[in-house]
Amino acid sequence: MKNLMSQLRTALVATVLLAVILCGVYPALVWTIAQALFPERANGSLVVKNGKIVGSELIGQNFAGAKYFHSRPSMAGEMGYDATSSGGSNLGPTSKKLIDSVRERVKAYRAENNLPLSVKTPVDAVTASASGLDPHISVRNALLQAPRVAKDRGMEEKAVVEKIEANTQGRDLYILGEPRVNVLNVNLSLDAR
């Protein structure tokens, strides 16, 4: 019994001491250095336009209308792209609900971008991302949307493709991950023109 009490006492003191260091000093130290070295990133990579915060470079948002590049389908929150409710569909490969909604999305995507039969639908354009906040689309998806965007804005298609290229990130260190187009950035650059 004496041993039990002394072990619990040690455990209690250890918990308090460790909590001070690990949950107080450590995050505060990371916060201080991060705010000094990378203030913009530590605060969310927010994008400001005309004095207003219009989004974050890292957080996808929904774009409707023909003049914008469209983000991937999103299952975050009931309306999609709800950045307080990240998550995916969690529907499995033999889910009727999943296959039905993909079929609808394929139909809509092919119609709005006027795809000929010979062109396959890019998979990222019709599937929901894991976070529901994916800020990127594949390069192929962007290029297939370019004619629509160009037409709606009355621009040369070549100029729109140039915007895509300017907002394409390659693989990290030339090796890691996948090439991708940041949807918010490419749309903002089109608006700024």
Partner: peptide
């Protein structure tokens, strides 16, 4: 999904991130 005319070479992207 491939039966719906989706590019089969890109694999299963449901629930995955582009990057």
């Amino acid at each position: 999904m491939h039966a719906l005319g989706i590019d089969a070479a890109s694999g299963n992207m449901e629930g995955k991130e582009t990057r």
